[in-house]
Design a binder for these strands. Sequence first.
DNA 1: ATATGTCAATTGTCAGACAATTATTGGCCG
DNA 2: CGGCCAATAATTGTCTGACAATTGACATAT
Lengths: 248, 248
Amino acid sequence: MRDQAEEETRKGILEPINVPKASDVLANRLRDLILGGHIAPGESLPTERELVQESRLSRSSVREALRVLEVEGLISTRPGRSGGSTVQLPGRGSVSRSMQLFVRSHAIRLESLLECRLAVEPFLAGLAATNHTEKELEELGEIHERFVLSVDNVAAYKRINLDWHLALARASRNEVLIALMEAISQPIFDAAGYQEVTTPELRHAAVKAHAAIMSAVARRDAELARTRMQKHISAYATIARRELMGRE
Amino acid sequence: MRDQAEEETRKGILEPINVPKASDVLANRLRDLILGGHIAPGESLPTERELVQESRLSRSSVREALRVLEVEGLISTRPGRSGGSTVQLPGRGSVSRSMQLFVRSHAIRLESLLECRLAVEPFLAGLAATNHTEKELEELGEIHERFVLSVDNVAAYKRINLDWHLALARASRNEVLIALMEAISQPIFDAAGYQEVTTPELRHAAVKAHAAIMSAVARRDAELARTRMQKHISAYATIARRELMGRE
DNA sequence: ATATGTCAATTGTCAGACAATTATTGGCCG
DNA sequence: CGGCCAATAATTGTCTGACAATTGACATAT
């Protein structure tokens, strides 16, 4: 009681001070060096023993710091002679994995993922129409051919469907949106794996929708690509929702 | 040469096998236990020494595994008596940090971030109009009051602006989109910190725009909220782009 | 009763050794 | 001279044991 009163009247002089761990300090230092461009991607970090000498820390601390950076995707380390830790850029897979952990651990509803897709992918189609290169368009067409052929094989169909959407995303040339799309695609794919939302009619409709979207993209008609993709995605979302309702 | 010929004609029986590290195996095992719900958030993992006994691995390996999970945001570990590692959910901050690493390391253009925001935030406003609770609306209004008062203090203005947008995102009740919004807001905020894109007129316009969006949200008019937010964001994006052009 | 010192349990750090992995080097044989 | 092969070296991976630092619980003295 008295303590509380004291806390109310007297404002403490010190906020709680946080003593960082040695390995974290080193990890932060190395991360700053990497992000600051002082060590370029592809270059090697000093070996563990060199880091021990330079930092005056023990090898355990150095190793923990390196492990942190490895999990963050900033370095990759190999054993053996002339092994060691080489700097690399995190890559979209890193964002994707983090998002997957988030989705899995929070038991995110499929509904939320579908909403996200509905927000992002039409926009993405519009960007792809504007920014795509010929090469990307060819790749998209090639995937589409395989898509047409796979219409009777559900497993292959699903996989190629995913590939097509990701290829379209890459054509948008927006790294952030590509990363986001890759991040949410996998969970949606997994969730859709358990519920069979594909009938032969739906698969043929998807083939037609993809073709229509590709033609809009090829003509660089962003608005058309956007609306067509929106229709495509919301049709899928409606089906998936209905299927989901039926389950619960 | 002979090897190459052999490789072409004879298809090998084995693909290169990958020997995993002990600490990774343990980390994967523990991650599966956590994500599988066998250890609930808030519960404690066994102590390091217990894990050593159970896994028959050394303490270094156990510690590395725990460090991996800590970086992934799945556990948090404290020293001292009755310390140890307690399970927790990754949280949006984890996704956000990963995205920030991605943006920083790839030197993503501000343009891409603005595009992403343009794709997501109008949709978010629409969801907020549909899904918000009274409490969230009140919080939004409270932030807005401070926003109005801060119109002459650029630093405070920027901060409160960010707060408002994040509060609106939270009102959407879509965890994935909230996480995404938090992830891209910080980099945008940082980038916008260096270039002064705010004049007093722009600040007053933003205040009016926020008020208009809030009224649409309060009336649960999703479509109106969406279009108003779209206008607001694209106006900002246009200014930011112009400013950016002037620099380069 | 309160304050203080002591103890116990846990993570953090250190040091040193050996195992596993991989590239290099040198020698041997054709 | 050239190619295979064994030895060697350099590096990360793992183990072991110890001690330091941190934190909560407890006993004890005033």
